[in-house]
Amino acid sequence: MKNLRLKSARAALDMSQQDLANRVNVSRQTINAIEKGDYNPTIKLCIAICRELDKTLDELFWE
């Protein structure tokens, strides 16, 4: 299932996938896979992404 909330939160900060990937120290393809719903990130990566996007885990990853 696509993670559109992550995509919109990233776009709201005018951040590219590469920018976010650099900030959380993963590859751009990993961010892309999370947004497409192809990869389920670990809680550690979820927290890092939430911190960078200034969102809570609930807002980005909870159903």
């Binding site: 120290n25 993963v26 590859s27 896979a33 990130p41 990566l45």
Partner: peptide, 12 residues
């Protein structure tokens, strides 16, 4: 450059 380590998805 960030190419000296794999991220968690790449390791998987």
């Amino acid at each position: 450059e960030r190419n000296d380590d794999y991220d968690e998805r790449q390791m998987l």
